[in-house]
């Protein structure tokens, strides 16, 4: 690997670390006496605000703004849940009592997830969390994985990819390879990429869980969150 690409890789990861958003705090919902529904509405409000932050974050990923508007929309519509769940799994690694740490002041254990209709999501996310914990991810790897999840999320089409799409994916891939080479971890980039299918499965289960709650239990959702769930 050339020293130029090494330098570029490090710059991309440094930039991703620098632009990683500060975690939001959950605003406790008080609109109902049903405590499970309150928890769920608190979580949905948090996710809606996180989506806004995520869209601004995506614009900061090197190469993203060079994509066409259609491609930007397509990647965000496919990959937003994956990008959000990387953060949840990372924060839940050392949680007491196997809780899911959606944010510092919103931690849900298995019983709470079951009560809110998110038992399926709990199981899938704990599995992903265990995987990341076993791999002992570094913060550099977490931010790069999050960006790669988004870059990799586009729908596969029979048409050749645009140059900008390829450059966007290759830039992140090269950054990860260079970072792992600098740590003398030859197989690590490949191992990280091999976790992306599990992340996608987990995100699909999360989307299905929220859509089920909205359609079957008529849980009200914010407009942006609903629009992004519907896009799936």
């Amino acid at each position: 690997l050339s020293s130029t690409s090494c330098l570029l890789g490090n710059k991309i990861i440094s930039h991703l670390l620098l632009t990683e958003p500060t975690p939001l705090a959950a605003n406790q919902d008080n609109s109902t006496n049903d405590s499970s529904l309150r928890t769920l509405l608190t979580l949905c409000d948090l996710m809606n605000r996180e989506l806004l932050v995520l869209i601004d974050w995506a614009k900061e990923i090197p190469g993203f703004s060079g994509l066409s508007l259609v491609d930007q929309m397509s990647l965000l519509q496919s990959g937003w849940m994956e990008a959000l769940l990387v953060g949840v799994a990372w924060r839940s690694q050392d949680a007491v009592g196997e809780e899911l740490v959606f944010t510092g002041n919103l931690r849900l254990d298995e019983a709470q997830c079951r009560a809110t209709g998110l038992a399926d999501l709990y199981e899938a996310l704990r599995h992903l969390t265990a995987k990341y914990r076993a791999m002992k991810l570094s913060p550099e790897e977490v931010v790069t994985l999050k960006a790669m999840a988004l870059a990799n999320s586009g729908k596969s089409t029979p048409f050749p990819q645009q140059d900008t799409d390829v450059q966007f994916q290759d830039g992140l891939h090269e950054a990860l390879q260079d970072y792992e080479s600098s740590r003398r971890e030859q197989h690590r980039a490949g191992r990280l990429l091999m976790t992306l299918p599990l992340l996608r499965q987990t995100a699909d289960r999360a989307v299905q869980a929220f859509l089920r709650l909205h359609r079957n239990r008529h849980v009200p959702l914010h407009k942006l969150l609903l629009e992004m769930l519907d896009a799936k």
């Binding site: 570029l8 710059k11 519509q77 629009e227």
Partner: peptide, 20 residues
Amino acid sequence: KEKHKILHQLLQNSTSPVDL
């Protein structure tokens, strides 16, 4: 576009491309 109008609007807000 109409169906995904919030995302469309949020992305159209001007942003400077990152030059690395």
